[in-house]
Design a protein around this nucleic acid. Structure first.
Lengths: 210, 210
DNA sequence: GGCGGGTCGTGACATCTGTCATGCCGGAGC
DNA sequence: GCTCCGGCATGACAGATGTCACGACCCGCC
């Protein structure tokens, strides 16, 4: 007893990713580290909070793109429900808006999926130690792009329009007048410096504003 | 010598995926299997053929979504250059058109990334043994959807239009008359049973026709 | 109280889109 | 030979879209 360097308990991890293959592969990868232990895996954002609580998770690795509750919403819910649990967002797309929203939601780290595999474990350790982990390049871009210029309605109308329907479709879906929809779309097109509705959709998506 | 059950040489694998994190994780996952060995990893389709030749690869696992040469084009090139090397497509999206094109390109297997991780190694072994590996559900869907109804020009015009530009933009990019572009778009809209250009884009993308 | 900003609506206008008819050319197939 | 089909184009037309001006309401803020 009282050894000079006691064996610390491993960091308990939760993995949330809708793609079972990558989820499993990441679990294997992280499980090889002596000080890390994957104690839970889920395939949707809705299961995150319950699972994190049940398994006394230290760090949750959340993908952004998931069906239902996405990783960012899940991060917010998780921070509220289990404040001791840190969140590391692991995502495919390094969209500026994602980063900002992730940090707002209380995430401690943000890693894109094309970073080298051997850095992931370090990111987890840093997050667990209370540090922030953010790709500096992405942080710069995020600052440059700034926060979304779209109001809530503009965003929701543009989101509906991104499905490809006509103005009439969008109006029906949002319970708005057709004229109003066109006004909001016009505003969104202007604010995104686009020249078409479709282009506005693309720009907003690229920036993570949808 | 002449032992009853000789140790067979491990199956030599190539991994191609633009996301380093999943690539590395998959490598770790597969490397744990005694009869599998990851001998090469690349991050783009252009490097596949050279790398496969250099490392005497038995089975190549290719992602479809990659910058530059995509996994399906790479599969075709690889089959032509190194016929002994089998191809297993590992992709995020189970789009019917992807499957068909992958098989046409000479792929032996097609696995979506939301299949359980423990099945991947089996898929690799089967492919190596000369068997076909295809998700039966996806095969059915692929048959139901059928092959792309779009002609080459319709496809390329729709692809250009998917970037969100106006008819004039597309006409400029494709060196066609504006009227012709509108004709092709109209045809594409009709063939996809869409009611808008944007919807036609969405449908074509979902089916893997772009 | 006044001001700004977001929300929702109307009406009018110029332009863009989607559709259709029609034509010409070239190649594949009978 | 002829026909069918795809590529390419033009012209015309109805309807959709994007823009602008304008007004109404509510809320927060100085």
């Amino acid at each position: 007893m009282g050894s000079v360097s006691p064996v610390t308990a491993p960091i308990r991890l939760l993995l949330a990713d809708d793609q079972a293959l990558v989820r499993g592969a990441l679990a294997t990868l992280l499980g090889l580290e002596a000080d890390l232990e994957v104690v839970a895996q889920v395939g949707s954002g809705d299961e995150v909070v319950a699972s994190a609580r049940e398994h006394a998770v230290d760090v949750a690795l959340l993908d952004v793109e998931m069906p239902g509750t996405d990783g960012i919403q899940a991060a917010a819910a998780l921070r509220a429900a289990v404040p001791a649990c840190r969140v590391l967002i692991v995502t495919t797309f390094g969209r500026p808006g994602y980063l900002r929203r992730a940090l707002d939601a209380g995430a401690s780290g943000f890693v894109v999926k094309d970073t080298p595999a051997d850095r992931l474990a370090d990111a987890v350790r840093r997050v667990h130690a209370g540090l922030r982990v953010v790709d500096p390049e992405l942080a710069v871009e995020s600052l440059a792009v700034g926060t979304s210029p779209l109001t809530d309605r503009e965003r929701s109308v543009l989101l509906e329009a991104s499905r490809g329907g006509t103005v009439a479709d969008v109006a029906r879906a949002t319970h708005l007048s057709e004229g109003t929809v066109r006004n909001y779309l016009s505003a969104a097109i202007g604010k995104t410096s686009a020249r078409t509705r479709a282009e506005a959709v693309r720009i907003a998506q690229d920036n993570g504003w949808l």
